[in-house]
């Protein structure tokens, strides 16, 4: 077995082990932390599809994260106040059902990513970074100034939304749900990476000229990747909002975009499990260093510098070595 496969399995096992230990030791806060890792990992896996496979450095993925969050917030707030979302031309009511909320989040995220991508992908390099950042900030300021759903104060949801057959308020059950979603997303992205689309996208990242010469349009490939990427990150936003039972404009902030990117870079750009490793490391550092000093971001920054300068493959690359060309 390849070292990376073993490492990936170990990562999953570690998450489950920590959650189970915390459950038996009655440490719900630790379970919440591990749940956070799984949710952040999903956001990172979404970004990694665009960034790692497609080479699209998006600093606007908070837009999709926030849209997922607000999809949950808006639907759930209407359900808890028994006011319909709209009555005309057809009656749409809020919902407390996670599967429905997820679907709405995924669709809204995909649609937003399609529009943002269609405009942003006309640029490349630093301009692409800036334009995605600008779109993210547009959503941020819109959320702040939109009073209907809490504006700057955010929007609390009193009871966590439901999933058929589970008691989602039980931390270990909600962890299991998020962990299962993360595994499903990992599986999906692994399939995409190994598909004809994955090959073409990877080719377009490495050499757009080559892809054109064989008759494929890089712009189209990038746009599809960006759309799927946005949809996945939106799903993680919905889960995150449900974890906190609270949505706020912070989900849209550029710091959030930066953090999602940090998960990917820490763990290993373009590595399937990179965001899982990155999110786990990030949360662990936040928990451990955050307990020592309020200014733990200084240490995070130093670590990020070390990774960027000396370990381009991130945590996964450090342990498993360089990616092999596999067939």
């Amino acid at each position: 077995m390849r070292a990376e496969t073993i490492l990936n399995a170990a990562l999953l096992a570690m998450l489950v082990a920590v959650a189970l230990w915390a459950w038996t030791a009655d440490e719900p806060f630790i379970i919440t932390l591990v749940t956070k890792v799984a949710i952040f990992a999903i956001a990172g896996i979404g970004l990694n599809l665009a960034l790692g496979l497609g080479g699209l450095v998006s600093l606007g993925h908070a837009a999709f994260f926030g849209i997922g969050g607000y999809a949950m917030g808006i639907l759930a707030s209407h359900a808890q106040s028994y006011t319909p979302l709209m009555e005309w031309p057809l009656l749409v009511e809020g919902t407390k059902s996670m599967p429905v909320i997820w679907l709405v989040a995924i669709l809204a995220g995909a649609l937003t990513a399609l529009v943002i991508g269609a405009l942003s992908l006309r640029t490349t390099g630093v301009y692409f970074i800036m334009i995605t950042l600008a779109f993210g900030q547009m959503f941020y300021y819109f959320a702040i100034s939109w009073p209907a759903y809490g504006g700057e104060d955010g929007l609390p949801i009193y009871v966590r939304n439901g999933f058929p057959g589970l008691n989602t308020l039980d931390p270990i059950q909600y962890f299991a749900l998020c962990f299962a979603v993360m595994c499903a997303v990992l599986l999906l992205v692994a399939r995409i990476a190994a598909s004809p689309f994955g090959l073409a996208l990877s080719g377009a990242r490495q050499n757009p000229q080559r892809v054109q010469a064989v008759g494929l349009v890089p712009y189209r490939l990038f746009l599809v990747a960006f759309t799927i990427s946005g949809a996945i990150t939106a799903l993680s936003g919905a889960l995150y909002a449900d974890l906190n039972r609270f949505v706020s404009p912070t989900m849209f902030s550029w710091q959030t975009s930066g953090e999602i990117m940090i998960f990917v870079i820490l763990g290993g750009v373009g590595r399937l499990f990179g965001p899982v490793a990155g999110a786990a490391l990030f949360i662990a550092l936040e928990h451990v260093l955050g307990g020592l000093s309020e200014f733990w971001h200084i240490y995070l920054g130093a670590l990020l510098l070390v990774v960027v300068l000396f370990a381009r493959g991130g945590l996964i690359g450090l342990v498993a070595g360089r990616e092999v060309a596999h067939d």
Binding site: I192, P196, L199
Partner: peptide, 15 residues
């Protein structure tokens, strides 16, 4: 793949 022109397939392993 370019020759066949169906790069928008997501679930079959290309290799």
């Amino acid at each position: 793949l370019g020759r066949r022109g169906d790069a928008l397939r997501f679930f079959t392993p290309v290799m």
